[in-house]
Amino acid sequence: MDFRFDIIVEYAPYFFQGLLATIGVSLVGIIFGLILGLFIGLGKMASHPIVRWPFVWYINFFRGTPLVVQILLVHFGVMPLLFAQPNAIVSLAVALSLNSAAYVAEIFRAGIQSIDKGQMEAARSLGMTHAQAMRYIILPQALKRMIPPFANEFIVLIKDSSLGMVIAAPEIMYWGKAAAGEYYRVWEPYLTVAFVYLVLTLSLSKLSHYLERKYSTS
């Protein structure tokens, strides 16, 4: 079998564009997923069941339905209500953010609830407000425990951004498929794409290990 590197070279500018798009939607998904997920996780821990209810169902929906369906709903259902010309990259980023927020919320909740009750009580007994106790006592300890599950979730998110293909969002997978179609070749474009995802996910995994080590020694 001959491996045609010239196809990769020729398509390199597109793969590069796709790489940037993949990194972009993943970063947006991670950042907004974290912000929205923190909020939803806190909502799910509310003491009143009626306050909890919408957050519980948000999480149920986004964890219990396929991401592909969510992407299609966002792109062809929600976005046209807001924009005349929905942009597939934007739709993908929104769907990934909403989806990862559900997982992040659960990680937050589990992390916070894993901290011994005595920590909150000690903080409150010293006159700290609930918010101060969260900020100085609970979150610093909980965040450390959340690093590995967050890394897992975001690795999944990077890989799942390839589903943007179904709405023709021009991320790296889209360009891989385009190259495959143009040259009638399988190995060169898809192995290139696979390699790119591998580099991204391994980097994230390294970063996670680094953070874990950094925060476990201090």
Partner: peptide, 16 residues
């Protein structure tokens, strides 16, 4: 609570 200190059986020091 600022005026009432409390000491617990399990210390509850902040480990971090």
């Amino acid at each position: 609570r600022e005026e009432v200190g409390m000491v617990f059986q399990r210390f509850n020091l902040f480990p971090h």
